[in-house]
Design a protein around this nucleic acid. Structure first.
Length: 425
RNA sequence: GGAACGGUGUCCGAGUGGUUGAAGGAGCACGCCUGGAAAGCGUGUAUAGGUGCAAGCUUAUCGAGGGUUCGAAUCCCUCCCGUUCCGCCA
């Protein structure tokens, strides 16, 4: 959500954001509604002033004066009752429009329609050279007896997965390693539920718009979040923090659920796109200073890069163009890891800076040094998401005999093993 | 699932119809005091909106919505949320 005052004062800037982000929203309608609402409010308030003043006179009035005052109060009350529902209705309408107003991207963000126009910033790591024909992750899992696709499908349908044997330990290792790593960089580890109240999605900015991505509970209001960003963002909702309490930086592990509506037929095979997965998410709440926030952006980006480097996975950094960045975002980079079987990079991380857009929806405020209440800035980036990360991991580290080499950084989390799997080729 | 209790300001907590935006305390800020600090003393300290150059004026807000009333934090109804106890249970 943007500050309504800002929207009034900078309509052109907002319109441009709406345009480049391809959001269907009539800002003029919003502005018109806003103007009408102010006029209506002024009318109502004038009447309220009169009513209040009148009511104050009653106890002081003489018995003779009283009936007239009470009658006047009745009339005013009557009139107000007619207007108040209208006022409330208009306010509701404005609020709904306001929730759809996107944040303004930085000037440096490339313009574009969709993800095909994202811009590669750089590539890191060395692509693996195989002296044999590498297998894809699905084949590797099967070869090692680490998966059981037919049976899981029977139990949990498509886009589900199951890990078995050493692959389970690998998944746990990757998650634990990430938590450990981020904790070492000052992030507070957090284990959260994915089951959340619906309003947390509005707070995070996923609603309105993302409703069809979210699983809802039958007979219950609760919903399943697709990322710990949702619960963590709402953790301090409505509170008034002290600036000295900031920044708050979390490494939150949770299950993540996504319906993947609209992704029909895409990545149905393997571990890339599943309905339920586990993720460690970096989430930062910092002071409302863009320079400070952008430093955090670099930090959480670097964290993810260093993690990938430790896992010895080649990756590239892609800057999301305006059409692919989401309404709330000011700046967004994806990290894509190399997937040998597809001979391309696939998104494994997504790093976002949202200014105060998310905090304003959530009510994340703090008192600054001058004693003023201001909305904080928020950022988030993936730490690691599994099983998706296992795709590049297994494929990049496979050896000729079908075993998987474990990078040194991960070995302590796997009982020191340098290799997992049996030689089966 | 059953039952009871409760939701007030940054926090704790008073407040059952009229000048209560809300006692008191804590916290915080500033000042005095001090070699420095603590304690102590004093003063100040809600948010959002409208209007105004400003001082200010004004409206809303005591979980939410509705009702009663000239007037509601206070009375009534509905809903939401929380806590506790019992039951069930990984």
């Amino acid at each position: 959500m943007l500050d309504l005052k800002f929207i009034r004062e900078n309509p052109e800037q907002v319109k441009r954001a709406i345009e480049v982000k391809h959001i269907s929203l009539d800002l003029d309608e919003l502005l018109r509604l806003d103007r009408d609402l102010i006029a209506l409010k002024q009318r109502v308030e004038a009447m309220q002033t009169e009513r209040n003043a009148n009511a104050k006179l009653v106890p002081k009035a003489t018995p003779d004066e009283r009936p007239a005052l009470i009658q006047k109060g009745k009339d005013l009350s009557e009139e107000l009752k007619a207007l108040e529902p209208q006022l409330r209705g208009e306010e509701e309408k404005l609020k709904n429009l306001l929730l759809r107003v996107p944040n303004i991207p930085l000037d440096s963000v490339p313009l574009g329609q969709d993800d095909t126009e994202n811009v590669e910033l750089r590539r890191e790591g060395t692509l693996p050279q195989f002296a044999f024909k590498p297998l894809d992750h699905v084949e590797l899992l099967e070869l090692q007896g680490w998966s059981d696709p037919e049976r899981v499908a029977r139990v949990s349908g498509s886009r589900s997965y199951l890990l078995k044997g050493e692959a389970v330990m690998l998944e746990m290792a990757v998650l634990t390693f990430t938590l450990d790593f981020l904790a070492g960089r000052g992030f507070t580890p957090l284990s959260t539920t994915a089951l959340v109240r619906p309003e947390t999605f509005t707070a995070s900015g996923h609603f309105p718009g993302g409703e069809d991505q979210v699983y809802k509970m039958e007979g219950d209001e609760m919903m399943l979040a697709g990322t710990a960003e949702v619960p963590v963002n709402s953790l301090y909702a409505g509170e008034q923090l002290q600036q000295s309490q900031l920044p708050l930086a979390f490494a939150a592990i949770s299950a993540a659920f996504r319906s993947e509506a609209g992704a029909a037929g895409r990545d149905v095979r393997g571990l890339i796109r599943v309905h339920e997965f586990r993720k460690v998410e970096q989430y930062v709440l910092c002071e409302a200073d863009q320079a400070v926030a952008l430093e955090w952006f670099e930090k959480i980006l670097k964290n993810a890069e260093d993690l990938l480097a430790a896992l010895e996975l080649p990756y590239r950094i892609v800057q999301n163009c305006t059409g692919d960045m989401g309404a709330g975002k000011v700046l967004m980079y994806d990290i894509e890891s190399w997937v040998p079987s597809e001979e391309k990079y696939r998104e494994t991380h997504s790093c976002s800076y949202l200014g105060d857009w998310q905090a304003r929806r959530t009510g994340l405020r703090y008192r600054d040094e001058a004693g003023k209440l201001v909305y904080a800035h928020t950022l988030n980036n993936t730490g690691i998401a599994s099983p998706r990360i296992l795709v590049p991991f297994l494929e990049n580290h496979q050896q000729a005999d079908g075993t998987i080499r474990i990078p040194a950084a991960l070995r302590p989390y796997l009982g020191g093993k340098e290799v997992i799997g049996k030689p089966v080729r």
